[in-house]
Every structure is written in C-alpha cells, then in structure tokens.
Write a protein that binds this DNA or RNA. Structure first.
Lengths: 235, 235
DNA sequence: TCAAAAGTGTTTGGTGTACACCCATGC
DNA sequence: GCATGGGTGTACACCAAACACTTTTGA
C-alpha cells in the first residue's frame, strides 16, 4: 500500500474531583525525550489491539481501575471517551507518532495509585497545569486543554458529573463536582431542585448520610438518563 | 520503538443542503476491496503531511473547493473539523489501517464536482444512506452516523448552519438549512426573530433579494459569533 | 442552644411558543 | 387584485434566579 507507516499511541486525560479540587493524573517521564518532564499517561497500541482497549489497559496500569463492574456495585464502569487525534508530523522527536487522546472521568480513588510503571504519578490541579503552557511534554498541553473543555461542556447537557462521584452520593456532593469543574459557585437550593426534578438524572437509594455535616442528606445513585433536558447552566 | 506500524488515512464526510435536501458526497469504489460499493471519499496521509492538510487536499480533489478565501468573498473558508478516529484491527481487509474522520460543510456548489479521481462521485440524501447500514463500505456507515449526529448537534449551539449557505443569504434560506438537517419544520416568524436578535449570528448586508419569491428579503453575511446563547431549539 | 447543611415555598423577570396581523413584491 | 413569502406585535405559559424560611442532625 502507498502510505507512510506511523506509530500509533493513545494518551489519557484522567480527571477526578478530590476535596473540591479538579485534578488530572500526570506522570513524570523517566526516559527521553522530555525526561523528567510532566506528561499525560499513554503508550503505544499493541498489534491487533483496539484503540479503546489500549486506553483501558493504560487506565488500569495507572490507576488500578479496570473499568469493570464490581459485584454489588451500581454505577460500575469508568467513563472513557475519545476526544481527538493529534498527528502533527513533528509532534514527537522520535519520529512520526499519531496519538489518539481519551478522556477518563474517575471518582475520588479510595486506594492510592498503584501498579504504575511510570517514574512517578500524581494528581495535579487542572487550573495550575492549564495556566502554564510549558509544563507538559509533547503537545500534551493542547490535549489537556481540549479534554478539559470537553468535560466542562458535557457537564451541561449530560449526567456525566456522576462519573466523578462514588456509587452513592448526595446532591451537595454532586454540586461540589460542578463547582470544582466549572470553577463557579452554584445556588444549593436551585441546584437541588433542578437535579431531583430532571427525570432519570439521579435515583434515590432511600438511605441518608450525615457525612457532609448538618441535616442528614438523601443518598442517590446515577440515573439512566444520557442527556439532560433542560441542561444545567453555568451561571 | 516498540509499536506496530499502521496505515494512517483520513475519510471525509462532506455534507451539503441542496434544494431543501440534506446530502452527503459519496464515491463508488473502482478498486477492491469493496469494489463497486459506495464509500466516503478518503485516502492515506502522505509522509510529513499533517492530518488536516490531508483532509483539505482530499476535499479539494473531490469538490474543487480549496478552502481558501476567494478575493472579495466574505465567508470564504470551508468548515472542516475532526470528528473521531476509527481503529478497529479488522476494519480494513488489507491490513491495519486507522482512519481519522473529518466533517466538511459546504454550500450548494455552483460548479459540478470536478477533478475527482474516483470512479464516480455523487450527492446522496443522508436519510437514505443512514436507513441502510449495509450500503457503505468498511465502517463508513458508523462514521457517517457519528458525523451527522455531530453536525445536527452543532447547529443548536453554534452558527455553523451558515457554512451551508452562500456568501449572502436570507433568513428563510438559513431556516431551510435547519429544517433539512434536522428534518423538522420551524416557525418562520420565531426563527427570524431569534436569529436576528442573537448577537453576531448574522450581519445585514443592506441588500435585498426576491429570489425566494414574495416580499423582498434582507440579505445577511455570517456573523462573528462562535457559539449561540441561547441555543437554537429543535422543536 | 447553636451551627451547619438539607430541603421547600414564593416572588419575579425573562424567554420561548403560538398565532394574529401587516408589508412589499411579482403576476 | 391576489398570491407569496417577509417581518412585527402580543398574549400566555413556563422556567430559572433570588432568597425567605423550615427541618434535622451533631456538638
């Protein structure tokens, strides 16, 4: 066939919300190029491997999350979606490498990051990384920018914010996700009404918790909705 | 490097609206695999070539549109955006080929399709193609589905419908685009009010036309807006 | 009893929808 | 004049922002 063979890789933008902070998982590169610089986790697609399979495998390597539904768990699967593909001829000094970027949204991980083969992996606040275009290796700043914009937009018209929450969560915990990702405060009372009245956004578990302090709050699971009508608004 | 070399290609979903019909440009394949079957135009990325450059080159080959701004023309550039990347290991019988799909929105072309190297190229109504999952070669039905969904969604919150219109257009011509792409009728009066009151969606040229019959209609250019607040609604 | 967070009620203004109605042209 | 599409006015329903207020817990 008449084509240039290229290296095919995937890069992962793994986002979470921890203690009200919107964070991304970065690794410190142990080998050249860009040795000792921060980068998104990623790697090459193996022979015969599907793109999403590569992404899930790397997600598991970095976070220990398999994306499989655990027995007894309600929500289960980790949200993973393709964002875009980056293929500038000079984006990797080693040669022609095209990278398919994936966005993963994970809840606050109970266990620390384990099983990573990177020199160091850590959660870093998204706003800090976005503010410094030179912090990341390769074109990863561009990739992160695109992925974060996608995530912020999707919170408006999809129930994706629940992907950041544990299996059972309170409305104010969900609101905390919106506030962290968007960086804006929301009215707790109108937010509560809007979420609970949008059909299939969340479903009550019948249980309550006082882990957030104050009056006990109802616990909810993710609902079955895939899009929100009307959308949540950012103001 | 430790990776499987793959063929890298781009496929194009070129959409237009002609006489109130929402259409896609398809080619009839002259060579195997899938000889004599309909497919999206596309081809391999050349050595050292950027992905979008490949897409623009193929767009020019199929339609004669360079995407360059013609002298004296207002709108100019053809809208071209990346949709997604398709990389299932068995999607091409010739071997591992990963394809980056691009979406192009073009106005009703004044000149016929020229300079095409395909056996045959023609405009086909989108709804007809979508209704028959076996009509297209490779995984092109999936690609078309994704691209059309993207286009339909983007009409809501971006001024992209103007990409289907000529340099100067009337509000009812713009409404015709929405109706063709969404497949739903819209109230002409409310549509007119909404479009003209959304800041920078369209800008008046000061001229009028009677080409649509009836009372002369004002002509507009595309405005400078990139997103629409509030969005257009599909009902 | 107080602080803190959950949740409900109510007012008020803006926005989309439906449709009556008038305007400017070609024939 | 009449048909045709362009464009404006307006009533009404709905929705969301703002905020007063009550509820239920822990300390």
């Amino acid at each position: 066939m008449d084509y240039e063979p290229v290296g095919l890789a995937t890069d992962l933008v793994i986002l979470t919300v921890r203690d009200g902070r919107f964070e991304v998982l970065l690794i410190r590169r142990g080998i050249p190029p860009y040795q000792h610089r921060w980068a998104l986790p990623g790697g090459f697609v193996r022979p015969g491997e599907d793109l999403e399979t590569t992404a899930r495998r790397e997600l598991a390597e970095e976070t220990g999350l398999t994306g499989e539904r655990l027995p007894g768990e309600q929500g289960g699967r980790i949200h993973l979606e393709q964002v875009a593909t980056y293929g500038a001829p000079d984006r990797d000094p080693r040669g022609r490498v095209v990278s398919v970027a994936y966005l993963a949204l994970v809840p606050d991980l109970p266990a620390p990051v384990a099983g990573s083969d990177a020199a160091a992996a850590s959660w870093v606040e998204v706003s800090d990384v976005l503010a410094d275009p030179a912090r990341l290796a390769f074109d990863h700043h561009r990739i992160l920018t695109d992925a974060v914009e996608r995530a912020r937009a999707k919170l408006e018209y999809s129930p994706l914010a629940t992907a950041f929450c544990p299996d059972a969560f309170t409305i104010s915990e969900l609101r905390g996700v919106y506030e962290a990702v968007w960086g804006t405060p929301l009215d707790p009372r109108n937010f509560h009404r809007k979420v609970t009245k949008t059909t299939n956004f969340v479903t009550p578990t019948g249980q309550t918790t006082t882990r957030d302090g104050g009056r006990p709050a109802q616990l909810f699971h993710r609902g079955t909705a895939t899009t929100l009508h009307p959308p949540m608004t950012r103001t």
